[in-house]
Design a protein around this nucleic acid. Sequence first.
DNA 1: ACCTCAAATCGAATATCTTCAATATAAATA
DNA 2: TATTTATATTGAAGATATTCGATTTGAGGT
Lengths: 106, 106
Amino acid sequence: MDKCHLDNAKVFKAFCDETRLRVLELLRSGEKCACVLLEKVEIGQSTLSHHMKVLVDSGVISARKQGKWTYYSISADGSKNAARLLQELTAVTIASDNDENARCCE
Amino acid sequence: MDKCHLDNAKVFKAFCDETRLRVLELLRSGEKCACVLLEKVEIGQSTLSHHMKVLVDSGVISARKQGKWTYYSISADGSKNAARLLQELTAVTIASDNDENARCCE
DNA sequence: ACCTCAAATCGAATATCTTCAATATAAATA
DNA sequence: TATTTATATTGAAGATATTCGATTTGAGGT
């Protein structure tokens, strides 16, 4: 497996967990401080921190530190990148009927 | 966690694993029989079967049985659905600066 | 009916992910 | 500087995923 696939998989990890989808949903209405997210999602503080790391690593969420607080928001660039990737991964290159790879051992 | 998030997570599971991304890449050039995929991806037969199930469950890949063989291909509908979902999950609803939820305990 | 071959399912081993409690770090405040 | 507060990190437990070998199922062919 090459590095490329690993990186691509990382982007979509953001959307693979229910808790992260819940956080994402909360952030749709705008930037939120971690403490607000913690109040709304029923998980421990360290668990939230872990999920935020996964989200930030995917590029879909960006973090902004201000004093003691960390503010999270949906990244427009990261989201666009994920959408572009999804498009690429599912784009059929040639739709010809006589694709030699299609047939197998018959 | 509600059923909705679980179902959404399932769609993106397709893109969360390197092996599945490799299979997806192979299918971009058109429909392929499982035996062809098995030749090209270095995994056991039962492992491939498992991954194909995850891919089909996500809706991104569709399966067609013909005689002894199963042919897999990228589903245009499933891909569109995934793209739409991604869009929805990352769409910021209101971008107003005075979002009351943004500020926290200060 | 028997045999062959493609694919699915089962059961077990291993690896990865999720979660929490405890601790560490880092910023603000007394 | 000591204390409080927000978040990150660590370490360990439990849950879920991945993988494989063995077996089963199902469609053809002999």
